[in-house]
Nucleic acid binder design. Structure first.
Lengths: 150, 150
DNA sequence: TTTCTTATTGCGAATCTTTGCAGGAACGAT
DNA sequence: ATCGTTCCTGCAAAGATTCGCAATAAGAAA
């Protein structure tokens, strides 16, 4: 099972034109086995635990090129530090509440509709594989709770 | 003129519940007199030139609370370092082309439409005072229609 | 103006992230 | 399996950003 994961990861890396290396597999593994977003320092810790020999600078570099390869999403929730999440190309979006800190998924259709309108009127093709919007959630607004969750 | 600016800035600071201080006026001044986005280090340099006595850590702190006050927008163009821009509450949005690096303004109505749809279906009030979308502009799209990740 | 409260600042040090470079590893070709 | 070309990585050092804390200055109140 871990093997399957690694096989997938290797394939993904290769099709992204990257070499399959120990450091990359470790970073990917840590990200894959953690639910939700992780800050760089958490990733750093996870990788260090798995293989103390991998250097911090390498982890940062790997994170950056996994991001560039589209396998990892890097999000900035407002002021805070960056956080990383394994996405492997899947489209998904977040609404991040600045009051309570919760992050909820955002309907992808709304995003793609918006995206195509932008393309229409500006000729600009937006990269909306992973979008983060800050704001205030239903609960914190105290208003109607029409959101069902998923 | 400079006086007017400073008067405005002071007022804005006060209504944001912040004290009017030398450091804040200097940072604001530097941002106001620069067209477009500036990285932290450029702001740092500008402030240092104006008043060498203001510490770097103070500039970072001021930048952060001007951001929190909504007077300054902090943008992250993809991988690069953060950049800052004096906005003082005005709504405006950017489309940033990852190919040529150009930044063009995005129609605010599209954004507010999108925003109200998100509110409708998720009960989530998005803060879209300053939005940055990455992608590929009309010019750079040229012939190719396919855009793969970032 | 003088006093009082507390947000801000400067300074030094800790922390986080990036960079240059030379040795080592991945992978296609032989 | 070995060779050769490039990509990656570890290491060390530089650079960027944040933090703790005592001293200072802003704004409110008297």
């Amino acid at each position: 099972m871990a093997e399957l994961h690694e096989h997938n990861t290797a394939t993904l890396l290769r099709s992204a034109g990257r070499r399959v290396t120990n450091a990359r597999l470790h970073v990917a593994h840590v990200l894959q086995h953690h639910n939700g977003h992780m800050t760089a320092s958490v990733v750093l810790a996870g990788v260090a635990e798995a293989d103390a020999h991998i250097d911090q600078s390498t982890v940062y570099r790997v994170l950056a090129d996994l991001r560039d390869s589209g396998l990892v999403a890097e999000s900035r929730f407002g002021a805070g530090e960056a956080s990383y999440e394994w996405v492997a190309g899947s489209n998904h979006h977040h609404l991040h509440c600045v009051e309570c800190g919760e992050t909820v998924p955002l309907d992808g259709e709304l995003v793609s509709d918006f995206s195509s309108k932008v393309l229409e009127s500006h000729g600009f093709e937006t990269d909306t594989t992973h979008m983060v919007l800050n704001g205030v959630c239903a609960k914190c607004r105290g208003g109607s709770t029409t959101f069902s969750g998923s």
